[in-house]
């Protein structure tokens, strides 16, 4: 029983990473219509940012948790202004290719500097122990990651549903042209929304650094699963992406326990099943974007 619960916990923790990445992808796709293939690379940059900050400058985890996403926000803003924006008016495939190329460039730049082997990153001292969760002990850091992921998703949800900015983002996601015709300067919100998604991926990367292997390919391994999560949740649906993120983490983790042979393919089997049943994903809307 405690083994089962522990595995559930493991699943929710990795689901937290799925949810944070899927959330950023969904918001960016909704607002810009861009499938951001570089999202995994931004996640990797977040983890490497934390590693470099500590190894080269002695910046502790907690400071990196704020500084690295802030830097990635700026990076994302520059990227949107200089490259992404120019391709938005054309076929979405162009930005897909651009971000795919960007992924390769970023990965190789990091590889050149630090090689392909994983870099160590210690857990912050405050969270190095375990917590007694009643039925079993669980690493305090993992509990922190889960709580942080849940709170971040909740915060983004509150921003989206309770603020004027969130209302504008929802409106521009649903009907960009009409929203402009109603007097809302949609273009002004595009850069901050993209940069926010990038920063969120970077934050997830910093959170991953102490518990996952920090290497140039860590994002590439994850992003394929995150794409499956986004498709299952419904492309562009923020709520669906987050829910699917946690759910897939959980299912995958239990799959590892009970059907280890399927552990790598389970997520894609689920994706295929969902697409057969609901082609727009669990929370996606049927109509196509115009």
């Amino acid at each position: 029983m405690s083994g089962f619960l522990q595995q559930c916990f493991n699943g929710l923790v990795s689901g937290g990473f799925y949810a944070l990445l899927a959330l950023g992808l969904a918001v960016i796709f909704g607002m810009l219509g861009v499938v951001n293939f570089a999202h995994g690379a931004f996640f990797m940059l977040g983890a490497f940012g934390a590693y470099v900050a500590l190894a080269e400058f002695g910046v502790p985890f907690w400071a990196a948790l704020v500084a690295v996403p802030a830097l990635l926000f700026l990076f994302g803003a520059v990227l949107e202004r200089t490259l992404i924006r120019r391709l938005v008016p054309f076929d979405p495939l162009y930005n897909f290719l651009l971000t795919f190329g960007l992924t390769l460039v970023l990965q190789d730049l990091v590889k050149r500097e630090y090689g392909v082997q994983s870099q160590p990153y210690p857990r912050p001292a405050e969270l190095s122990g375990s917590l007694d969760l009643g039925l079993f002990d669980y690493p305090a850091y993992q509990v922190f990651v889960l709580a942080a992921a849940v709170l971040l998703c909740l915060a983004v949800w509150l921003i989206l549903t309770r603020t004027r900015v969130g209302m504008v983002v929802r409106a521009a996601t649903e009907r960009p042209e009409l929203t402009r015709a109603l007097g809302v300067n949609v273009g002004r919100w595009v850069t901050p929304v993209f940069a926010f998604g990038v920063a969120l991926a970077g934050l997830a990367g910093v959170l991953a650094a102490p518990m996952r292997a920090v290497n140039p390919l860590m994002g590439a391994d994850l992003i394929i699963a995150v794409f499956a999560v986004v498709v299952i949740g419904g492309l562009g649906s923020v709520f669906g992406s987050v829910l699917a993120g946690f759910a897939i983490g959980l299912v995958q983790s239990l799959g590892n326990l009970y059907v280890p042979a399927l552990s790598q393919t389970l997520i894609f089997i689920i994706m295929a099943g969902v697409l057969l049943w609901r082609p727009a994903g669990l929370f996606g809307r049927e109509e196509a974007r115009t």
Binding site: M167, A171, E174, R175, L178, R180, A181, G183
Partner: peptide, 23 residues
């Protein structure tokens, strides 16, 4: 651009009503 025109005092009621499902 469209949003500037709206801000100059033009209101648009489109043929499909343009009501948002997510609002």
């Amino acid at each position: 651009p469209a949003h500037r025109r709206a801000r100059l005092g033009v209101g648009y009621v489109p043929d499909d009503r343009g009501i948002y499902a997510t609002l």
